[in-house]
Simulated assay, not measured.
Amino acid sequence: MGELFFHNVTGQKRAAGHLSDMVRTGRILHAMILTGDAGSGRHELAEAFGAALLCEHPVERDGFLEACGECRSCHQAKSGANPDLITVRNVDPKTGKMKPPGVDDIRRMRDSVAILPYYADHKVYILPLADKMGAQAQNALLKTLEEPPAYAVLLLLAGSTDGLLPTVLSRSVTLRLQAVSSDLIEKDLVSRGIDPKKAHRYASLANGNPGRARLLSGSESYEEFFRQVTELFRDLPKKSAGDLSLASARILGTDADFDAEEEFYFLAEMYVRDLAAGLANAPSLIFHSPITYSNHTVENEPSLTFDQVERLRLAVSNARERRARNGDPVMTCELMLLSMRDALS
């Protein structure tokens, strides 16, 4: 079980307030879609809402009506053993990673929905990666969405609504989570025992996502990875095709506790964004701030033009599209770096 309380979910007061008000008024929606990137707090909010809805003695705390944390229901929720608060899990047995619920998972959930709550007035179902579910699984979900029992509450967690069928969207209410300020993320990291200087660095790298900041700040390999990437971008104009081929294989082959490929493309996007921000005399967040590991600032770049920055942006965008079409990871990375080098030359 995650945070359990609304007030512990970083930077999502608006969404938490809506969910808390439902508990307070008793006007519970039967199907909601919580949209936000992984790490934005969508799962924590869903768990906090479920815990508050099932709590025997909900309490007012910091402006929210939320779980007391002391009753039987709350103790069961904390341990992940509350029979009326169910996460529909589909774990890959080989990798241990969570996959979107499949049609069989949804059918089992439908059978469970037909059973009355064990203790509370509601049964809450949390569906992670709902926007990644296939059409067959989503269609299997429709029957429950169309004719839900009065006690059933379904919380669909999604990166966006793009992957959800119109029939699912029309039977649900969407609650969008917001990006979180770097100041709030920094405070959250410090409260978790992270060194203030590191907290500032990772809050800047979080892109408004507290979960991302926590993941990177807890990584044993991220700082070295970041140093290698920033130095690669700094020295791009000097690199040969062979150098870039070796760099691509080395970076994507990083043995890390984070997704090295996704992080590399994210940093490439931030690098281009920072260059554009520098040309526009706007504040930048990563590569031209005090947290950088090198003196890689716009001032000591060659005089760039907006056309060059656009070519850099296209190089990264094209690489993203290639990977989405299952292009070879190393070759795609190498082509992107070659295009970026040529744009800087």
Rank of each mutant, 00 (worst) to 15 (best):
D92K: 01
S217T: 09
R192P: 03
S40G: 09
S79D: 14
N281C: 07
E301Y: 09
E56W: 01
S303D: 13
G63D: 06
A77H: 13
D104M: 07
A249T: 01
S112C: 04
I106N: 04
L164N: 08
R27S: 11
Q178S: 15
S317N: 06
S172G: 06
L156C: 09
L54M: 06
A52E: 04
K239P: 09
R176E: 02
P290D: 00
A203M: 03
D255V: 05
E269I: 05
A152C: 12
L156T: 06
L157T: 01
Y271N: 04
I28D: 07
N207V: 02
M1F: 12
G80V: 04
I194F: 14
L142V: 08
L165Y: 10
N82Q: 13
S217Y: 00
Q228G: 03
K238H: 01
I115E: 10
P100Q: 04
A280Y: 02
T95F: 05
C74H: 06
T87F: 00
A343F: 10
L127K: 00
E66G: 04
F5P: 10
S294Y: 05
K197D: 09
L252D: 08
A81L: 15
L232R: 04
Q308S: 10
S217A: 15
M270N: 10
V298I: 05
S248I: 04
A120S: 14
N209R: 04
I251A: 09
R320I: 12
G96H: 08
M331T: 06
L155C: 11
P166A: 13
K197Y: 08
P58K: 07
K132Y: 00
S172E: 04
F258Y: 08
L34E: 00
R14C: 09
A277I: 02
V180L: 10
D105S: 11
F225Y: 13
N90R: 07
S219A: 10
L34Q: 02
Y202A: 02
I286P: 00
S20I: 11
R176F: 12
M98I: 13
K239A: 07
E223D: 15
S303R: 13
A16C: 14
A67N: 08
I185N: 06
I86V: 15
E321D: 08
L65C: 01
A282Q: 08
A140P: 10
A179N: 10
F266V: 00
R322S: 12
A77M: 14
R107K: 06
R110P: 09
N295R: 13
M340H: 03
L19H: 09
E44S: 15
I286D: 12
L157E: 15
A67Y: 06
A260E: 03
R42M: 05
N207W: 00
E310V: 02
H75V: 12
F64N: 11
T174I: 07
E186A: 01
L127M: 03
G278E: 04
V330C: 13
A206P: 07
V113R: 04
Y265F: 05
S160C: 10
M98Y: 02
E47Y: 11
E231V: 14
S221K: 14
G80N: 03
G327D: 11
